[in-house]
Amino acid sequence: MNALTVGEHHIALDKDGFLLDLQDWSPAVAEALAEREGIALSPEHWEVLEVLRGFYQEYQLSPATRPLIKYTALKLGVEKGNSPHLNRLFNGTPAKLAAKLAGLPKPTNCI
């Protein structure tokens, strides 16, 4: 099984690298997941991950790309909630990758 080691904790992942148990998420887990993707989390990444966790809190599902952009624009302004910015931060697949790092389930309505 796919797993991640953070400190002394072994954390189970699915075949695509998403957390099996969403309760396992912590900032340290996000850092470790990002490292596997070759990303060093900057404050710009973190604010988007916070937005995503807020989205999940509110709607109990992971956003596809369009709702992610719309919701980010609503929370952080249009200079952050746009496709080029999010693509640059999350290797061109923001809905999928940012959901993974934020500890959300895999988005279902995503190309």
Binding site: F55, E58, Y59, Q60, L61, P63, A64, R66, P67, K70, Y71, N109
Partner: peptide, 14 residues
């Protein structure tokens, strides 16, 4: 799964 919460996402999904 919380259908009522999911329904709230409809406007976000356009």
């Amino acid at each position: 799964k919380d259908l009522a919460a999911n329904l709230q996402a409809l406007p976000m999904f356009g």
